[in-house]
């Protein structure tokens, strides 16, 4: 599966979809898009990770940055579909509850 992320924004709601690998190589690209999204102060950001196969600490850092940005702007943040290796990493770093995993 190739690495891919997309942001669909409808009004004050945004859906971020991340597929493939989110790591030290791909996270900087996502970080740029995160800055743009956070600047709009969305009321709700849902992150779809059902297609995410691998994540490393840099990928987690990018998601934490997104979480902090959204919450800092008063918005809600939810992660859907995390499984396998990414889910194991979130649990290890105790971020499964922070990210409100669905």
């Amino acid at each position: 599966m190739s690495n891919h992320f997309s942001v669909e924004q409808t009004g004050s709601t945004a859906k971020v979809t991340i597929q493939g690998t989110l790591d030290i190589n791909s996270a900087p690209v996502l970080a740029e898009r995160i800055d743009q999204l956070v600047a709009t102060k969305p009321a709700l950001v849902s992150v779809d990770l059902s297609g995410l196969e691998l994540i490393d600490s840099s990928g987690v850092a990018a998601l934490v940055k997104l979480y902090k940005g959204v919450r800092g702007g008063g918005g809600s943040f939810v992660v859907n579909g995390a499984r396998d290796q990414p889910l194991a990493i979130f649990k290890l770093l105790r971020m499964d509850k922070v990210f409100n995993l669905q």
Partner: peptide, 9 residues
Amino acid sequence: LDELPEGGM
């Protein structure tokens, strides 16, 4: 970890 670090993990 409780401080949601963005590095050092």
